[in-house]
């Protein structure tokens, strides 16, 4: 199967790419890693008239940690006032860079732990964080992880730029809050301050038939405890559990304010089991997906409390 004919333009700069997208509108698509777009074109599911290749642009892929001022908007959670230190990732940062980054391993262990589960090594050599998030596949690991991390996404167009919270970004399956002329250019992840007064620990787990395949179910968990060991914040994010990545906020309420015991974990898992809306497919029925969500929720919370604090 081969792609239908299209016009290919190698973008020379961010401005060039944005101008082309403003000019061609819906007819044009950005080409990032191509690991979702090109298969869709080969299968003729996607037939863009124009491809704007972002790969020739330098400077769109990077990992850096800096103070991100003026970002206290929306659901800024963990980092709100006391900690504007953020990890900033360029949209064209490839998975292979993310998975090998010592800075990410140290500062954002949740993302580090998730990367080896995203596709196969050859796909990770090309696939990009921005392409993944803009693709907005609810079965992907990274959108769910970004929800749990309270990430913010920078959208740029010829009209200017704006930041969108992860919780507002994924609108439905394969659909985001990006306008036709906008490009996702940066991802900002607020970093929790870990002190004696407040410590945050995370865990990612999924179950796939084969390593690297899309998972039947997966969960990203973040738990914050105060000095007395009481849970002050909890986030439970699920993939392949609805039209968007899903935060099980009711399940998290079973943990917040508690000195978490096995009974609280059981309750949270039971609520999450019912709260998510998995689609079911030939690999796993809806009931099996819910069952897996319950199992993974229990395992991940136990793993965090027993081994990560």
């Amino acid at each position: 199967m081969k792609p239908a004919a299209f016009k290919y333009i190698a973008a020379q700069s961010l401005e060039h790419a944005l101008t082309l997208k403003a000019e061609y509108g819906d007819e044009a698509k950005f080409l990032a890693g191509g690991q979702s777009l090109v298969p869709a074109m080969n299968l003729r599911v996607a037939k863009p008239g124009v491809l704007v290749d972002l790969n020739p642009i330098t400077g769109l892929g990077f990992v850096e940690s800096r103070i991100k001022a003026g970002l206290g908007i929306g659901n800024w959670g963990l980092a709100r006032d006391d900690n504007p230190q953020s990890l900033i990732l360029g949209a064209m940062t490839r998975y292979r860079t993310l998975e090998r980054s010592a800075e990410i391993a140290a500062q954002c262990p949740l993302l580090h732990e998730t990367m080896p589960h995203v596709a196969h090594p050859q796909i990770r050599n090309r696939g990009t964080l921005g392409g993944n998030l803009a693709h907005a596949d609810p079965a992907s690991e990274l959108p769910a992880v970004m929800l749990v991390l309270n990430a913010q996404f920078k959208a740029q167009s010829v009209r200017g730029e704006r930041w969108i919270a992860a919780c507002d970004f994924f609108t439905t399956i394969f659909t985001t809050a990006l306008a036709t002329d906008e490009m996702l250019t940066e991802i900002a992840i607020p970093l929790p301050t870990n002190s004696d007064a407040s410590r945050t620990r995370t865990c990612f787990m999924e179950i796939a038939r084969r390593r690297g395949d899309y998972a039947m179910m997966g969960v990203a968990v973040s738990i914050t405890l105060n000095a007395a060991g009481v849970c002050t914040d909890a986030k439970l994010g699920y993939l392949n559990a609805g039209d968007t990545p899903v935060l099980a906020t009711q399940a998290a309420q079973a943990l917040i304010g508690q000195t978490i015991s096995d009974a609280h974990i059981q309750t949270a898992a039971a609520i999450a089991h019912d709260e998510i809306q998995p689609p079911g497919n030939m690999h796993a029925s809806v009931a099996f997906q819910r069952h897996l969500a319950g199992v993974l929720t229990r395992r991940a919370i136990k793993e965090i409390l027993d081994f990560r604090f």
Binding site: L31, G34, V38, N42, R96, P121, Q122, I123, N125
Partner: peptide
Amino acid sequence: EYGVCGACTILYDGHPTRSCLTL
């Protein structure tokens, strides 16, 4: 020809890459 089997893997600037997902 949609990235799943790996038969078409080549080295692109030294990194294993699907040649069927590269133009």
